[in-house]
Amino acid sequence: MAQSLAKEFTKGLWAEMPPFRLVLGLCPVLAVTKSVENGIGMGVATTFVLVFSNLLVSLLRNIIPAKVRIACFIVIIATFVTIVELMMQAYAYQLFLKLGIFIPLIVVNCIVLGRSEAFASKNGPIVSVADGLGIGIGFTMSLASLGAVREFLGNGTLTIWEGLPVFSMGPDFIPFRFMLEAPGAFVGLGLMLFLMNLIPQK
């Protein structure tokens, strides 16, 4: 039991790490990774939704009729997304302003619906939570690492919380602004995927 739990949890951290291994849910990955802070914020919000929607879908998996299951999953996910949205407005307003429309859009993030359909609807609640947590943390790490690359090259800083850089290259650093613009997101993610592909998979 404990072994399979650990397995479901860790697969999200590497073997099925979205979006590098599982190329899904790219919109927020490209859009919000202008800084590490935004990446972590988005990742945590997505993880919250993943864990709770996985839990609920798994608990209700025997009650939900097969034909309307997608509709039910969507209602469950949308509910948690709205809770996250309200909570962020109440307690992390600046972050909410930065992430903007991408918070409500977690609802159409393929990763979340994908986990409900492919995993939680077939497995028990505890494993499903482990799965959601693992995938969510993997997603957060990807967002944070892409955010770190883009923020470092594009602005010469690394910011973790409330807009305060924990690391700065100082005023002599000439930032590579391209990385903060839209094309930089595509190229940055493309090259990171390339680096991931260089590491052989077992």
Binding site: I63, I64, V68, A71, C72, V75, I76, A78, T79
Partner: peptide, 13 residues
């Protein structure tokens, strides 16, 4: 099921 789910979700929100 759908109605109950939506109602619960609405109430919670």
């Amino acid at each position: 099921v759908l109605t109950v789910l939506t109602a619960v979700s609405g109430g919670l929100l």
